[in-house]
Design a protein around this nucleic acid. Structure first.
Lengths: 131, 131
DNA sequence: ATTGCTGCAAAAAATTTGCACGAAA
DNA sequence: TTTCGTGCAAATTTTTTGCAGCAAT
C-alpha cells in the first residue's frame, strides 16, 4: 500500500470509473472497465484506467481479484476488512460471482510451524443460470 | 487442453527443463525456469521456455499455479488428478509451498443453484523458517 | 531423409511513462 | 493561480511468432 502525499482530485473520469465498477457488482478487468466507462466518457484513454485503478487500489477503495487461470487481474469495490468473501467462476458463462460466506477451518490445512494471516478461495463450477 | 498431432521429441532442452522444474519442488515462474535451466544449457532462449512449458502443460505433465497478487503464472509438475493440493505463500520470504491436505467442506460455501466442480485455495502467512 | 525443435530476432500484446494542455481546488 | 490529472504517443515490458539450420527419429 502507498499513500499519496497530495490531494486526490475528484475528476469526472474518476467519478465515471468508480460508478462503473460499483454498478457492475462483480470483478472487472481493465479492458472491461475501459469499455464500460467509454460509453459515458468516449475520449477516456486506457492509460487513465490503469492509473486510476492503481490510485483507487492504493487508497484501498478497490480490491484486486485474481482468478486462477486468467492472466489479467480484475478489480472490485473494497468493502473493508470486515467484509471477507471469496469468488466463484462459472465455467460455462465465465462470469465471476462473490461468495458471501466463509467460516472454513483454514488453520486445519497448515503444516506445523506455519501461521495463517490471510487466504483466498476460488470455486469453479456452473452458476445458477447455467444449469 | 490440446493434444499434439505428431511425435513430441525428447530434446536435451526439454529434458533440462523437466529436470529443473522437478527438482525445484515448488512452482516456478518462466523467468525462474529460464534462469535455472540456463545454468545447465547456456544458450537456451526464453522463447524455448515459453514453448516447452506450453507443450508440457498441454500434455498435462505440468500444472499452472496462480498466486493471488502475482502477475505471472508459475508452473509445477502435475501429479495427476488424485493428487489434489493447495498452496501457501510466505509473506516474508515469498516462497510458495505445497499444502498436501484438503478435505474442507467447500460445498458449504455455495449459494443455492451453484455446483462445485473444482476449487483453488491459497493461504498467506509466514512459513516455518520465517518465524 | 524427414520433419520437429531451437535460437535468434522481429512482431505483437500488455503496461507504463513523458509531456503539454485542460481542469480542479 | 497553482498543480494535479488527462489524453495521446512513445517507451518498456512481456509473450508470441517467422524462419533458417540443427537435431531427433
Amino acid at each position: 500500500m502507498h499513500y499519496p502525499t497530495h490531494m486526490v482530485r475528484n475528476t469526472q473520469q474518476r467519478e465515471t470509473l468508480k460508478k462503473v465498477i460499483e454498478t457492475a457488482h462483480r470483478p472487472l478487468s481493465i479492458p472491461e472497465i475501459h469499455e464500460l466507462a467509454t460509453q459515458k466518457w468516449p475520449r477516456l484513454g486506457i492509460a487513465t484506467v490503469y492509473r486510476e485503478v492503481k490510485r483507487l487500489s492504493d487508497e484501498s477503495l478497490l480490491k484486486r481479484v485474481d482468478i486462477p487461470g486468467e492472466n489479467a487481474p480484475r478489480y472490485e469495490i473494497a468493502h473493508g476488512h470486515h467484509h471477507h468473501h471469496h469468488h466463484f467462476k462459472c465455467d460455462v458463462c465465465n462470469k465471476v460471482f462473490d461468495i458471501e460466506t466463509c467460516g472454513l477451518p483454514i488453520e486445519k490445512l497448515l503444516p506445523a510451524g506455519f501461521t495463517h494471516q490471510a487466504h483466498d478461495i476460488t470455486i469453479f463450477g456452473s452458476c445458477k443460470d447455467c444449469h
